[in-house]
Design a protein around this nucleic acid. Sequence first.
DNA 1: GCGGATATGGGCATTACGTCA
DNA 2: TATGACGTAATGCCCATATCC
Length: 298
Amino acid sequence: MEDPRVRDGSNMNNVLCKNERFFCSSEVLDSLWITNSSPSFHGSTSMVNFENVQGVKNTERSFFTEIDKKGNGNDDYQSEKKRRLPPDQVLFLERSFEVENKLEPERKLQLAKELGLQPRQVAIWFQNRRARYKTKHLEKEYDSLKESYDKLKADYDSQFKDNEKLKNEVRLLTEKLLSRDKGKRKPEPLDNAEPKKPNLSHDSPNIPEGFSKQEDASSAKSDVSDSDNNSTLVELADSSQVHEQDPSDFSQDEDDSLSKSLLLPFPKLEAECYDDLQPNSCNLGFPVEAQGTCFWPY
DNA sequence: GCGGATATGGGCATTACGTCA
DNA sequence: TATGACGTAATGCCCATATCC
């Protein structure tokens, strides 16, 4: 069974248009496509006697002038020196690549025939093109990840400052309450007085000490993953509904200790705050395979 | 049905060459 | 003119898969 897609050049437009994701202009494709009736690409070798898709001879290319000057009539593809493909051929291959980045044998033969290239050349071009695409894609993915990371880090820093501010407020209020209690009654032994502290503390009798240790923001930041400090902060701020730490949420990020420490205070960010991100814009916590993608696998 | 030999194609690292600043 | 950086065509190797016997 012959694949109708590759039967002739006129059908190639359908091939190129079958994927609606890509820009597809029949005029453009018509200008690119050379039908079998055109002698333009029918040279027996890769690019000898090549004419571009508009039928204009490429007599300006240095390679041909060199060949002509030397009177080299050798049609053997293997013996030819390596040279870049002309822009029109590259454009045509790019269009084909946009449609499908894998090359079935029949399509390879058809492209080779239409472009006047060796099938091997077409296959190599697609192979290299896939490699280039992968590189570019990885670069974009890296940039996206970095952007997401920076954003997340900025969010964390902002939240950290707010946290510090709230801690200071709690500390001041605690001191006020303590001083007011002192004024009301006689001083009591310390261990007796502790349980009479206001609701700010349930299980952490040494709150002021804990705060005093964290007044230096930088040192406190380094301790951000300390569960004792976190629990203290949460209880003091009476925000247990906000902070429900689940260590399992970060099991996929073990290799990145910095990211892990940054994320710890905000275990629900991934699930709740980044739903609107574009695919591939943030991979934190998600395996690459699980991300939606409009790109080809490579 | 199973297993080995062979062919084919893709991925990847690398090389070779052309181009340009 | 020489040179280094960069892009890309091409090569070689490895692996997965399909087919044949």
